[in-house]
Write a protein that binds this DNA or RNA. Structure first.
Lengths: 107, 107
DNA sequence: TGTAAAAATGCACAAATATGCATAAAAACA
DNA sequence: TGTTTTTATGCATATTTGTGCATTTTTACA
């Protein structure tokens, strides 16, 4: 029986990763540290939005950051995040194949 | 560069796991198949709510279900979900230790 | 000290999610 | 066919989450 407090923490942690804009940022950070100013042009959203998403992931312990002059650099803190992303990628792709197979049977 | 469609799918998949009630259900399903009627008394929420959460996870391909008489049984479809849960558990516990350490330094 | 670049924050609003209550539908069986 | 058990759904509402715009803060440097 898992403790209810831990459930809430794990939920928040997963949610912090699950949101599409944040997920996209994580994929972009896979090949190393980037400053916010390099992340923003890759995204379609407002600077304020990206700033908030980055802060949120930092607060959750998913990202580390440090300032260099006017720039703030972000990187993925725990390498296990990469394993998690890879796992999800595998599972979703398997699910896509499953759906295609089922669609074929029905056709 | 990961495709935007895939990002959305992975986001939905993760969100389906991340919600606290659903996460709790997944932990409960770790030791095998259970019918909805066995899950409900473990949860504090309304039956309708649990039913919807189960349906949602089924739709996302996280759970499989089959009916036996009036009862509907659910189980985790992909074993990799266990690895994912274990990973998150490790990461969150590591983060908890980190926070405790930082708190100690400040004290 | 004035200006520029990068990042953070206040605020209002929009959109997505989760919830309970009441009720309906599905299945088994007397 | 009527009753019971289990699960699903319609509906309204509450809560959470994400968003942009405008403004402010932080830092460097002319």
């Amino acid at each position: 029986m898992i403790e209810s407090n831990l459930i809430e923490l794990e939920s928040s942690y997963l949610k912090a990763i699950a949101q599409p804009t944040r997920l996209k940022i994580l994929y972009f950070l896979k090949d190393g540290e980037k400053c916010q100013c390099k992340i923003i042009p890759r995204m379609k959203e407002d600077q304020s939005n990206i700033s908030r998403h980055l802060t949120h992931m930092k607060d959750m312990g998913i990202l580390d950051s440090h300032r260099e002059g006017v720039s703030v650099y972000y990187k993925i803190r725990d390498k296990r995040v990469f394993s998690l992303l890879a796992l999800v990628d595998q599972m979703v792709k398997a699910e896509i194949r499953e759906r295609a197979k089922r669609a074929k049977v029905l056709a």
